[in-house]
C-alpha cells in the first residue's frame, strides 16, 4: 500500500516535470515554433474555427491563435519568474537574517512583512502600475514585493529551529561567523522548503500575471500573453464559443503542474527532516519505542 502510494507520487512528479519541460520549451522556442507571425492580421480569416491552416483558429483581427499562444508563453512565464525571483530575494535573505542577525533586524523585518501581508496582490499591482507606468515589469515588481512575506515566513520558520542546534553551537565555538554558519549548516536544511514554496509561488504568480493581463494591466494590446488572450477571446464568446478554451487550458495545466511538483517535493522531503538523518538499520531496530505494555 505504501509502495503503491509513493509510486503514484513519483509518477505525479514525473508528469509535472514533463509538463513544465514543455512549457519551458514553449517559452524558449515559442517564437520559432509559431507557424505565423503572432502580430500578423489576416483580414480574410477573422474569428475562424480550427482548420488545417490555423489549428486553433484565428482571433477577432485574424491573428493565428496557436502562434499567439506560443509567442505569449515567453512573456507570461518570464513575468511570473520575475515576480517570484524578486520575492525569493526579498523573502529568503531577510528570513535567514531575522534568525541570525540580531533582535533589532528581527523585529523590524517582522513588522514590515506583516504590513506587506495585509496588501492585496492585484489591487496593489494596479496601484503600482498606475504610479510607475503601465508596464509588465512594474506590475511584476509589485507582485514580487508582495510575495516576499511568504518566502520570509517559511525560511524563518525552517531556520529558527536550527538556531539552537548543537552543530551550530559547535561551529560557533570554532569561531565561525554567522554568515558561515548559515552557508554551511542552515542553508541546505532550509532549501527544500524554499523550493516547495517557489513552485507554489510560481503557480500563483502565473495566475496573477494572467489576471493582470486579462484586466489589461502591464501589457500593451498587440503583445500576446495568455491572460490577455483569454480576455480578448471572452469578448467574442458568441461568435467563437471555444475561443477561451486554449489559453485557459494552458494556464490551468501549467499551474496544476507546478502545484503537483511542490506537493511531490514536500512529500519526498517529509516534515523538513532530511533523509540522511535516518539512523542505520540496526539502530532503528534497537531504538524503537514499543507500545506501553
Amino acid at each position: 500500500m505504501r509502495a503503491l502510494r509513493s509510486a503514484v507520487r513519483l509518477r505525479a512528479a514525473k508528469i509535472a516535470l514533463a509538463v513544465l519541460g514543455v512549457v519551458v520549451v514553449l517559452m524558449v522556442a515559442g517564437e520559432w515554433l509559431a507557424p505565423y507571425d503572432p502580430l500578423h492580421q489576416d483580414t480574410t480569416a477573422i474569428l475562424a474555427g480550427p482548420s488545417a491552416e490555423h489549428w486553433l483558429g484565428t482571433d477577432y483581427v485574424g491573428r493565428d491563435v496557436l502562434s499567439r499562444l506560443l509567442a505569449g508563453s515567453r512573456l507570461s512565464v518570464i513575468a511570473a519568474a520575475e515576480a517570484v525571483g524578486l520575492g525569493l530575494l526579498l523573502g529568503v535573505l531577510p528570513g535567514l537574517a531575522s534568525v541570525y542577525f540580531g533582535p533589532v533586524f528581527e523585529w523590524l523585518s517582522l513588522r514590515v512583512m506583516d504590513g506587506l501581508m495585509a496588501l492585496p496582490f492585484i489591487i496593489f499591482a494596479i496601484a503600482v502600475a498606475a504610479l510607475l507606468g503601465n508596464g509588465l515589469h512594474q506590475a511584476m515588481f509589485a507582485v514580487g514585493v508582495l510575495m516576499a512575506p511568504s518566502f520570509y515566513r517559511v525560511t524563518r520558520a525552517a531556520a529558527i529551529g536550527l538556531r539552537q542546534a548543537q552543530y551550530v553551537e559547535a561551529a560557533t565555538l570554532f569561531g565561525a561567523t554567522r554568515w558561515r554558519v548559515v552557508r554551511t549548516h542552515v542553508w541546505q536544511k532550509v532549501l527544500p522548503t524554499v523550493v516547495v514554496t517557489t513552485a507554489t509561488a510560481m503557480a500563483g504568480a502565473l495566475l496573477v500575471v494572467s489576471s493582470l493581463t486579462f484586466l489589461g494591466i502591464g501589457v500593451q494590446p498587440p503583445a500576446p500573453t495568455w491572460g490577455g488572450m483569454l480576455a480578448s477571446d471572452l469578448g467574442y464568446l458568441t461568435q467563437r464559443p471555444f475561443g477561451p478554451v486554449a489559453p485557459a487550458l494552458l494556464i490551468i495545466v501549467t499551474v496544476a503542474a507546478l502545484n503537483a511538483l511542490a506537493d511531490a517535493i514536500r512529500d519526498a522531503t517529509g516534515d523538513g527532516a532530511p533523509a540522511s538523518s535516518v539512523p542505520a538499520p540496526q539502530e532503528v531496530l534497537d531504538d524503537v519505542p514499543a507500545a506501553r505494555v
Binding site: L285, D286, V288, A290, A291, V293
Partner: peptide, 20 residues
Amino acid sequence: SGSGKTLTCRAILGVPPPGV
C-alpha cells in the same frame, strides 16, 4: 548494541519493531 537483546525482549512482549 546490535546483539538482539532488545529485539528478543520486544518479541516476548508482543511488540516487535515495525517490519520485524
